[in-house]
Amino acid sequence: MNIGSVSGGLQRLGALVTNGLVDLGVAARFFVAILAASGICLRRPGLVIKEIYFIGVLSLVIILVPGLFVGLVLGLQMYDTLQRFGSGDIVGMVVALSLIRELGPVLSALLISSRAGSAVTAEIGLMKTTEQLSAMEMMAIQPVSRVIAPRFWAGIISVPLLTSVFNVVGIFGGYIVAVKLLGVDTGTFWSQIQESVDFRVDVVNGIIKSVFFGIAITFIAVFQGYHASPTAEGVSLATTQTVVKSAFVILAMDFVLTAFMFRGI
């Protein structure tokens, strides 16, 4: 091994670390800029409502249908396993707890990031490519407050609402399988759920999780779009990166949040 390749490798490693730190700095500055520009969302709520339509309303279908199927599958699988211990009756509790604590927030965040996050990135990236953002700046309109901030807040509002819908539909799916298909008693199904699901520990923590996921996926989406290279290739790369990075961040964040929330219970 010659000196040249070693020093080249070191150089690349150094560049990787420095570039990572630079990106992190840019992201942090961008985050602060969005927060500073958020006043427009209160002055012109119409902007946010329009984005809630694109992020929230149009994502309803991809939340309702997979949510139902996740509930159905969970009901079937859990009943099959629990039946071996003679406790098939608690299938409702297992479905509800796993949905509210983990699967609801994580799966709906993943679905929303691939349905809405990628669309937001592509839209902003294309605006940048066609120089609409520069045109706005020429007209003394801040693109961060006019384009970015409404999308950011719309995402934060939409994700927890969609997560709640996902949970309810999932529990309904579990109900269909357990009560209608497998013959668990309706009263037992609901009382087991009510006995085990706690408002503070489970429901509130689930909502807190989904708020964090909402912040993460919308921030990644607008960041990738705003900092995409203004070419067709750059926009497509940024869109892919949004979905990939969102998935990483959601799953990593989920572990950290769970470790904080459900420790010692």
Binding site: S164, Q194, I207
Partner: peptide, 28 residues
């Protein structure tokens, strides 16, 4: 604009109803 507002209103209502359902019916 009005249709947009209506859809967003429906969406937010569904979301809030789902949260209330989780709090009252599921978490009792």
């Amino acid at each position: 604009r009005q249709l947009l507002d209506l859809w967003v209103g429906i969406f937010v209502t569904i979301g809030i109803v789902a949260t209330v359902f989780l709090s009252l019916r599921v978490a009792n």
